[in-house]
Design a binder for these strands. Structure first.
Length: 269
DNA sequence: CCGCAGGCCCCAC
DNA sequence: GTGGGGCCTGCG
């Protein structure tokens, strides 16, 4: 068991923000599976307790090395974002594993969170090696190339998305995903959209939630709804226009603005 | 039982 | 270049 002091961090908001699909909660403790790690974590005031990974992993995973105050100052120029930040202060954007993130969001098309969680859990069980922590059962997520059995992908109840997962497994390597980090945002996005089943939304999710592109702004049905309500009431506006507006309006940390607005949208459901 | 969901692809226009 | 139907499957 390790313990560390954390500032400007709220574990609950960060883990329950709806972008991670292998998180479970038991009272104060969260169990998180990420790539080939499984760990437990809890927060009491400004201390984080954790087990199963080291401090370096925690800092990177929860993006605790980001200039949080500067980010909030920049996105807080917008009044709606500012009030969302007040409510959900300490929420961070986790750095997921790019491959697991890509597969998760490929599963998200026309789905819902419980279904995505089911898909990812079944894929992990079917293709991943067993890893355990304190007798907790867990499975690593398979590496690129590891989803090598179409029938088993279908058995994971992935439906029409199975063909996308299978193709991604053929096309994508660890090196390809890592190389995207060094590209300008438009080029990295274009490269991701070459993968069948990946459009604007999924590409932006992978860029924001796993590859460190803090300016990426995924537009899903929740964000669409809240942007229209807050900024374009009674106006016809396309996703293309919403995306252009958001990136200009919120700037290089637009992704953080997105995530805070997303929290507002979800609470109003 | 039945409509629908955190989206993409394809095909009209 | 833009809009709308179809898609697997589980959830509500």
């Amino acid at each position: 068991m390790s313990k560390m002091l954390v500032k400007d961090f709220n574990l609950g908001y960060t883990l329950l923000c709806g972008q991670m699909f292998r998180v479970s909660r038991a009272g104060e403790w969260f169990t998180v599976a990420a790539r080939d790690h499984i760990f437990k974590v809890s927060q009491s005031s400004e201390y984080l307790e954790f087990e199963g990974v080291d401090k370096r992993f925690i800092v990177n995973y929860f993006a605790l090395d980001e200039p949080y105050a500067a980010i909030l100052e920049e996105i807080g120029r917008d009044g709606h974002v500012r009030s969302a930040v007040k409510k959900y202060y300490g929420m961070r954007i986790v750095r997921q594993d790019p491959w697991e993130c890509l597969i998760s969001f490929l599963c998200s098309s026309a789905a819902n969170i419980p279904k995505i969680k089911l898909n990812i859990e079944m894929l992990s069980k079917s293709f991943g090696r067993s890893i355990a922590l304190d007798g907790l059962e867990g499975y690593a997520f398979p590496r690129p190339g590891g989803l090598n059995h179409y029938g088993k992908i279908v058995q994971a109840k992935t439906g029409f998305r199975a063909k996308y997962l299978h193709a991604a497994n053929e096309l994508v390597s660890e090196a390809f995903l890592e190389s995207l980090r060094r590209l300008p945002y438009p080029d990295a996005k274009k490269a991701l959209k070459q993968i069948p089943g990946v459009g604007d939304k999924i590409a932006d999710c992978v860029l924001l939630f796993s590859l460190g592109f803090t300016g990426a702004f995924p537009i899903d049905t929740w964000i669409r709804k809240i942007l229209r309500g807050l900024y374009f009431e009674n106006q016809e506006i396309s996703d293309r226009e919403l995306l252009d507006f958001s990136q200009k309006h919120f700037g290089r940390y637009a992704g953080y603005a997105q995530q805070f607005l997303y929290m507002l949208a979800r609470e109003a459901m």
